[in-house]
Computed example of a mutant assay.
Amino acid sequence: MAAVMRQFLTYLRIECGLAANTLLAYEHDLKRLFEYAASRGVTSPGEIDALLLIEHGRWLHEQGLAGRSIGRHLSVMRVFCRFLTANGIVEEDPSELLESPRMWKRLPSVMHVKHVETLLASLDAGERLYLRDRALIELMYASGTRASEVCGIGEEDLFEDLRMVKVTGKGNHQRLVPVGVQAMRAIDDYRRELRPKLAREDRPTEALMLTRRGTAMDRIDVWNVVRKHSRQAGLKDVHPHTLRHSFATHLLAGGADLRVVQELLGHAKVTTTQIYTHVDHARLQSVIKKYHPRA
């Protein structure tokens, strides 16, 4: 199993050009499939059949996975089975009978504008990394960047005169995103006063956001920063993607064009961006329900 998985991941990386994070997701899902297969006595990829895949999907549902997560697992299984068929490991594609679970839309969590202000106001100016944390949160809310994207922003990706930042997203697709005055001011304060103190001569890096050790921040570092300060602010269920969701929803609520927001978020399909219009509609419905006398 392990050897075939390595071949499959190499195929995805070289032939399909999938990004590192996507490859990690594929590997994670395949390992779960292989573990389930082993529990059913299946130890060779050639023994994988439709019944095993269907039972695995049912098992994922029993584990409490959301429909979207199960759908991703099934997509990985389909691609893997096509790979097995193309390489003669199985004669017929066992995934042909698979049906995706109904992909209900789960509305993303969004912060109210005043909660964003509360989060920023909760930062302690006396902390050593205050300037970095403020610049990080301001930038993510101002640009709608993913955690992995903000980690990939380098010094050379900032265009201060234009108030723009170059972001490299999924599939190494690049986009230019405008950054507001307050976020750019926070970034400038961080770059001028703190980043030179964090940077190390023996481990130089062009990354904009640095850890206290002088290395480039990763997604876990970003997650920990947002979680730490949101808890201090008394806010629940706030994570890096919440800032991205809030960025998009607040723009649309303010009248921004859907296609513009799609471009800013780096979405390949506008249907992905449309979920944020439903968030705003849900907010409006709650207002009507609360205040209309016959709601």
Rank of each mutant, 00 (worst) to 15 (best):
5 M>H: 10
11 Y>E: 05
11 Y>L: 06
16 C>Q: 14
19 A>S: 15
21 N>C: 11
22 T>A: 14
27 E>N: 11
28 H>L: 14
30 L>Y: 02
37 A>F: 00
37 A>D: 06
44 S>L: 09
49 D>G: 01
50 A>T: 15
54 I>W: 06
60 L>V: 09
61 H>L: 13
62 E>G: 15
63 Q>G: 08
66 A>R: 07
67 G>K: 03
67 G>R: 03
68 R>S: 07
69 S>N: 05
74 L>C: 08
75 S>M: 12
81 C>W: 00
81 C>P: 00
90 V>T: 14
90 V>R: 03
96 E>S: 13
101 P>Q: 08
102 R>T: 12
102 R>P: 09
103 M>V: 06
108 P>V: 04
108 P>R: 01
111 M>N: 02
111 M>I: 06
112 H>F: 13
122 S>M: 07
124 D>P: 09
125 A>D: 11
128 R>K: 13
129 L>I: 11
129 L>S: 07
130 Y>H: 14
130 Y>C: 15
135 A>V: 06
140 M>Q: 05
142 A>G: 01
142 A>V: 00
143 S>Q: 03
144 G>F: 05
144 G>M: 02
146 R>C: 06
158 L>V: 06
162 L>C: 08
163 R>P: 06
166 K>P: 01
166 K>C: 11
170 K>E: 07
175 R>I: 10
177 V>A: 01
182 Q>Y: 12
184 M>K: 01
192 R>W: 12
193 E>T: 12
193 E>L: 14
205 T>F: 08
209 M>C: 10
210 L>W: 03
218 D>V: 09
220 I>F: 07
224 N>R: 15
226 V>G: 05
230 S>W: 02
233 A>E: 03
234 G>Y: 00
245 H>R: 12
246 S>C: 05
249 T>W: 03
250 H>K: 12
251 L>M: 11
252 L>W: 05
255 G>C: 11
269 K>C: 08
276 Y>C: 01
277 T>N: 06
278 H>E: 15
278 H>F: 12
284 L>S: 11
287 V>D: 06
292 H>V: 07
292 H>F: 10
294 R>Q: 13
